[in-house]
Amino acid sequence: MKDKSWKPWVLLSPSLTAIFFLLVIPICFVIVYSFWLRAPSGADIPAFQFGNYAKFFDDFFYPSILLSTLRVAFETVILCLVFGYIPAYFFYKTRSRFKPFLMLLVMLPFWISFIIRTLSWINILGDSGLINHLLLKFHVISSPLAMLYNEGAVIMGLLQYLLPFMILNIYVSLDGIDKSLTEAAKSLGCTEWQAFKEVTLPLSLPGVSAGCLLVFVLTCGTYLPPMILGGPGNEMIANLIFKRIIGTLDWPFGSAISVLLMVLLMVIVYTYNRYMGINQIFKTLSNES
């Protein structure tokens, strides 16, 4: 495979063409728009000024939304990791003949509209939802608990949306691990836990980090769970963009917020690629074997 430097480009060309025309150029339009002005009627006026960016940092209101978005994303990643790793590990370990069935069950929520799944939490957490209904019925509480329209409910919705992403990413990576490696470790006197810690866990890290990145980034870009399950103070940055672009037709300001969010996420992804990059992991693997 030497001297065939053209080959990867052939393989990449369809994707790159699509991305170039449908992502790169359109994003340039967004960047250009972020310098424009908005007329009171909602029309856009071409200009070159930084007013939209200045407005964002004018006071603490907009940055605080950005910060709380990052906090919610971080919390969601941690919870997804805890609730996702264990089922993924179970799939990897189990020899049950129901395994394909269980795997399909994990995929199943994907098949149900995201909006419906988000709405469904209202049936569970609402004042007349399942939990309150049961608690009231068994006289545990005398008046309904307010579980909806707060950050907890938003995270619930996010978690249900994102958990399958995490489980599948970890599982795909676990599945690629040669089971004889853990057997070997155990025959050398390792306990189950040690074998997991020393062999399985490190080898599953590509999946874990890919899953974490995915969950984090998707949380930062979503607006439906806060819109449906959150209270007025739980808005996230994507809600703000949605409101500015669609609500007030303020495309220039909405573009500016989008550019800021994109830059932030790019820094995160760049860092990820740099320190935990797929490539990096591949290299260490090939060096060891």
């Binding site: 209101f61 103070g233 303020d250």
Partner: peptide, 19 residues
């Protein structure tokens, strides 16, 4: 209402967010 649209919409956002 159209003359004040953006200004008031943004103020209203802040009120709603409790900030």
């Amino acid at each position: 209402w159209n003359a004040h649209q953006i200004d008031w919409a943004e103020k209203w956002d802040r009120i709603m967010a409790g900030k």
